[in-house]
Amino acid sequence: MQPFVRTEIGKPEQWLIEAGAAIGLNFSVFIHETTNQFRDHVLNRHGDPAIHGTATVINEDFSRIPSIIQKPDMAIIGVKRKGATYIVYVKTESNVTYLYFEQILNSRRNKALRGSTFYKVTRPLLLNEVLKNISRNDKTDLKEAKIFTRGKS
């Protein structure tokens, strides 16, 4: 078993700090991060070409994460699943829609927006398709989530 390794991506952008403040969250003290467990999960769950075909997440896709969180087409803040709260970032590039999920970790010792999962759909998605895609498992609650598009709510 590998030791737990965190990789810091950086501080939240101003648009995210403002969006968080609009719903009562102070993201100014948080950092974006991923872990080796996140990377392993994504490759194990979404990285098999035999299952996912052209939607397979490959190593090069991870380098897109900083641009996805800096300038998403859409961010859905406050998604709830199994007692945890998430931000879902959506970005479409070259007719591929990337969905990147961060768990909001807000404890005394840990103020992080930690990568949870990452996958892609091989076509642009409309808002209703994004919402259906992230809530299809009936374990995800969007009732309190707020949607921000290109820096606007």
Score class of each variant (00 low, 15 high):
residue 123 R to F: 12
residue 84 A to I: 07
residue 96 V to C: 07
residue 61 D to E: 10
residue 144 E to Y: 10
residue 50 A to Q: 09
residue 124 P to I: 06
residue 123 R to W: 04
residue 26 N to R: 06
residue 89 Y to E: 05
residue 95 N to Q: 13
residue 84 A to L: 14
residue 81 R to T: 09
residue 103 Q to V: 07
residue 94 S to H: 11
residue 129 E to D: 06
residue 106 N to L: 03
residue 6 R to Y: 14
residue 12 P to N: 13
residue 8 E to M: 13
residue 145 A to L: 08
residue 39 R to E: 10
residue 38 F to N: 02
residue 64 R to I: 06
residue 130 V to T: 00
residue 100 Y to I: 02
residue 3 P to C: 13
residue 128 N to A: 14
residue 150 R to S: 10
residue 67 S to F: 10
residue 105 L to P: 00
residue 21 A to Q: 15
residue 144 E to D: 13
residue 32 H to T: 03
residue 93 E to W: 05
residue 42 V to Q: 04
residue 55 A to K: 09
residue 34 T to L: 14
residue 22 A to K: 15
residue 119 Y to H: 09
residue 109 R to Q: 07
residue 151 G to N: 01
residue 140 T to N: 02
residue 58 I to G: 10
residue 52 H to C: 06
residue 9 I to D: 01
residue 91 K to F: 01
residue 115 G to T: 00
residue 106 N to W: 04
residue 59 N to Y: 09
residue 8 E to R: 12
residue 24 G to C: 08
residue 79 V to P: 03
residue 32 H to Q: 10
residue 86 Y to I: 01
residue 15 W to S: 04
residue 71 K to G: 11
residue 22 A to S: 15
residue 108 R to Q: 11
residue 17 I to G: 01
residue 116 S to V: 04
residue 74 M to S: 03
residue 76 I to K: 01
residue 41 H to W: 05
residue 9 I to T: 04
residue 13 E to W: 08
residue 23 I to G: 11
residue 20 G to Q: 06
residue 146 K to M: 10
residue 69 I to S: 02
residue 124 P to D: 09
residue 134 I to V: 04
residue 133 N to Y: 10
residue 61 D to K: 10
